[in-house]
């Protein structure tokens, strides 16, 4: 193919994408980094003084920061646990032949296509409302006092909502991986005397390990920046009980107008995300060499 396109024309074709993405990546990041060293509040116009790492030390020692980090991790880990375990189970069910399989598949993946604000509002009002919500009605039917989900267990409630949105994604990817498993391999294991459980542990699970890794890494990237669900349901509250890092930075910047402090938070979020990102890049990069 070397004769079809010269290198120069290939570079020319790639230039717009590369330049745009480069600018998109570098300019905001550089500005955020710059702001993070300034005393810069939108409410106090005038000189923005260079204050070194003061924003960072302020942000890092703020109890809200530690709380937000903890919430971010809890949210990510909680959703990952539910979606990966639930996804494997659901994928195993959907992989079996049964009547109406195609329709059930469509039902299962549907939540993924619901926009975050809609799913957050539907869950907040119609399911989790302590008086009129369906969960409250079920609780009363079982003779339990209904709880005010978003006030009493805000982070857990948000975890449930987000898990509902991402369970289809995990299921779909794990199902795809499951279906690529060679049937003869399972039959060979059966001939070797492996029961259903050991077939799952020794054949199916290792085959899925790659897909599970992909699910965990990709979801982590998105889950680290969960925003709309928190904004719509709890506004980070009560207090800061459901504030994650993304929401904290948002609140610092657009509610308290502290550009410097928020920028320092943004940089910290970038660093955290990159630690995850490095693993993902490596994994997908390996796949390219195939």
């Amino acid at each position: 193919m070397a004769t079809l396109h010269t290198r120069a024309s290939a570079r020319l074709m790639m230039a717009p994408s590369v330049i745009l993405l480069f600018v998109w990546m570098v300019v905001p990041l550089a500005m955020t980094l710059y702001f993070s060293f300034l005393s810069y509040n939108l409410l106090t116009p005038g000189a923005h003084n260079f204050i070194g790492f003061l924003n960072y030390s302020y942000f890092l020692t703020d109890p809200a920061f530690l709380m937000a980090i903890g919430n971010t991790l809890l949210l990510v880990i909680g959703v990952l646990l539910i979606t990966v375990i639930g996804g494997i189970l659901l994928a195993l069910v959907l992989d079996q032949p049964f009547w109406g399989q195609g329709i059930v598949r469509l039902l299962v993946i549907a939540p993924f296509f619901v926009m975050p604000t809609v799913s957050a509002l539907v869950w907040k009002n119609m399911l989790m409302n302590p008086v009129y919500g369906l969960f409250a009605w079920i609780a009363r039917g079982l003779g339990i006092t209904p709880i005010d989900w978003l006030a009493d267990v805000p982070l857990f409630s948000i975890t449930l909502i987000v898990a509902w949105q991402w369970l289809p994604f995990a299921t779909l990817i794990l199902l795809t991986a499951l279906q690529s498993l060679d049937g003869e391999q399972k039959e060979a294991a059966e001939m070797d005397g492996a029961g259903a459980v050991s077939r799952f542990i020794y054949i199916v699970l290792p085959h899925l390990s790659r897909a599970i890794t992909v699910v965990i890494l990709i979801q982590t990237i998105f889950l680290l920046s969960i925003f709309a669900e928190i904004l719509v349901t709890t506004n980070g509250g009560p207090g800061i009980q459901s504030t994650n890092l993304t929401y904290l930075v948002y609140a610092q910047a657009l509610l308290q107008f502290d550009v410097g402090g928020a920028s320092a938070g943004g940089i910290i979020a970038v660093i955290l995300a990159n630690i995850v990102g490095i693993f993902l890049i490596r994994l997908i990069g390996k796949n390219l060499d195939r």
Binding site: H5, W24, P28, L29, M31, S225
Partner: peptide
Amino acid sequence: SPTKHTKDVLMWMLSTKMMPAVGALIP
């Protein structure tokens, strides 16, 4: 017409996805 650097460019493009939105929100 892949070159030696094609893979690196692709990986780099992907890495821009890793940047959390809050890192860019303020600017």
